[in-house]
Amino acid sequence: MTQLALVIDLNVCVGCHACVTSCKQWNTSGSAGPLVDDAPYGKDPRGTFFNRVQTFEVGEYPNTQTVHFPKSCLHCEDPPCVPVCPTGASYKRKEDGIVLVDYDKCIGCKYCSWACPYGAREFDEDRKVMTKCTLCVDRVTDKALPESERKPACVLACPANARLFGDVHDPESVVSTAIRERGGYALMPEWNTRPANHYLPRHRTGMTIHAEDLVRVDNPLKIDGKQPELPQQGAGREDYAT
């Protein structure tokens, strides 16, 4: 059974917010929209966005990590937002595992947003219904689009190709392969929601220098009759843990 999902590669996300506004523009004029902007030109603007990027810091200077963290509905395999909905507006599709809100059944009680441990749902103050990432169901099922474009808007937009898309129940899919090979992980697994979306961790590439790398018989200084300076303090020791 298919479970569509996103895998977000934190190793290459530079926090550009392409996923945020490409989602906004696709969905506001699409079947999931419109997405309101309150006080769009005023104090404390706040609008409905299905995807947001939070940038946060870890550690103390100089060993600081800056992490760009996009987050949208994780289309859980066991979504807590579904059983709590009094009208059945919150549902998970059998055919592809996408979790959706049926706007015509939603009464805006907000119970689902309390149940979601990820804060992935946003209440649209204009339409008075709950909204969330639809995994661009209107794109991924649209046979009129070329197959390469039957992907969520955010996936196609991402300049760093940090958002992978596919079926996490298919072991050969690009998402399953990435999770397996790169140590993809779920958010807050202790909640037993079994999120379909996964994240790929940061991976650090270092360089080892051996002492003899710096002392060479074919050193070009010798061509001009000079001797190279001997390197000081050995080689290869890095001063920061980052």
């Binding site: 550009c16 917010h17 506004t21 490409s22 906004k24 196609l156 937009a157 300049p159």
Partner: peptide, 23 residues
């Protein structure tokens, strides 16, 4: 304007688009 996306056939951005372009 309903949607602005990157042109996959364009050599510069090869289909991607940033937050600004999407807005």
């Amino acid at each position: 304007v309903r949607y602005i996306e990157g042109n996959p056939e364009h050599p510069l951005n090869q289909g991607v688009i940033c937050a600004k372009g999407s807005s």
